[in-house]
Write a protein that binds this DNA or RNA. Sequence first.
RNA 1: GGCCCGGUGGUCAAACGGUUAAGACACCGCCCUUUCACGGCGGUAAUACGAGUUCGAUUCUCGUCCGGGUCACCA
Length: 482
Amino acid sequence: MGKTRTRFAPSPTGYMHIGNLRTALYAYLIAKKDDGDFILRIEDTDQGRLVEGAVDVIYNTLKDCGLNWDEGPDVGGDYGPYVQSERMGCYLDYAKQLVANGSAYYCFCTEEELDARIPKKEEGGDMIRRYDGHCRNLSKEEVEAKLAAGTPFVIRQKMPKEGTTTFHDLVYGDVSVENKELEDQILIKSDGMPTYNFANVVDDHLMGITHVVRGNEYLSSSPKYNLLYEAFGWTPPEYIHCAPVMKDEHQKLSKRNGDASYQDLVKKGYLTEAVLNYIALLGWAPKGEQEIYSLPELVKAFDLSGISKSPAIFDPEKLKYINAEYIRALPPEDYKTHAMPFIRSAVERDDLDFDVLCEVLQPRTEFFGDIPEKLSFLNCRPDINPELYFSKKFKTNAETAKPALEQTLSVLEQLDEFSVASLHDALFDLIETLGVKNGWILGPLRVAIAGVPVTPGGAVELCAVLGKEETLSRVRSALAVL
RNA sequence: GGCCCGGUGGUCAAACGGUUAAGACACCGCCCUUUCACGGCGGUAAUACGAGUUCGAUUCUCGUCCGGGUCACCA
């Protein structure tokens, strides 16, 4: 048995959606779990749907996520080229091989003939037509003659009429279909290009792919693939079909619905590692209770038996939770690097202690994009609603706030160093001297300098963030209206 | 419509013939606490339905219902 080789084979038609990325992740994990190779192949046979820059999005996303490929268009490898449009030479020859051994045949039916002979019927909202095998029985002479005359043709796979075909899937087990259900699908189009189904089989075989990981929309066409392998005398790969990632009970996650893509999530301030961790868990369950996994840990823990057969709904709440876990685990410098652009977008002033600000923000950040709304009070001196001074628990209100703030102000005026530690000491000394509850002093102070009911951090931290000058100015102006 | 696949709390999911049917997110309550978070403790909440096999079914079989996929010279 050779090395495990998996591939990720996207078509560059847009962006990386979460489902795509998960398929790539699983393919990567399956290969790496076995010390195998992960291959990137670009399937760009549909030139009409190519989107500018889409290949770069694929490269960048995979690189960001650390899903490094061992072979691919840019890094090369022994099985190239890795861009399907550059492999066009070989497919027709392979198809002819199948014609020669009786597993495929030339078909000269035109669209018009088909419409006349077997009009499409509506079934369940789709227009359906099953090819009738008209050209299966053409004599060798007829075929030769048409080819010689230059009649346009396609090559179709000749499906057995009887019996059943079974293939084994590592997730779904054995799947069988009656051969009579199988259509004589087109292998080579009239322009000489292979269809996706055919190119896929040939490429996977030529590239030595041992495990095919893909969405389960291919589950029902897999028997056809296997019949193709059989016709060539090739060994079929192992199949791992994955249930889709859903937006809700009915719809898949998709760009068309405006659903979050990987890039969108990153832009909103989600960490790559967290996104990857979350999507690994969407449709796969580890053995134990652990749910925070780095990529190397995933490689170790990944196990095919944990892959789910049913669709999974993408849950933004759970992603937020996982992301928050990652954010809290960040070293403070890294947190600051990530957070500063978002802080800057909300805060216009420069004279704040951003280290302290980051310190109070870090345990309160679920994703970086939620930072700005927490910080608007930092920009200018607040207008204070006196009701904010009221607290049942600390027996405070606008009346008690006045003496409390006066006492506090005189302490703060004496204090030179506005660090969290020195502010804490000074204010708690005052609290002890007065013999009051912490909240009797600290509650009103927080309101006076912030003016909003909810702030990241308490009075002590906020004083440190604002600095002496701004703090005193805010306390004085709060006092002035009491 | 034919065929294929699936169906455990709101969500992700464990349990692969015997459990009081895990755990996590969300939600609710309590504690901690200078607000909010973090943290700690506790709570509400599930085997789609009906038959069968079995001493015993979430688990095996069949039917029903529900959902998804597929049936292209698209990938």
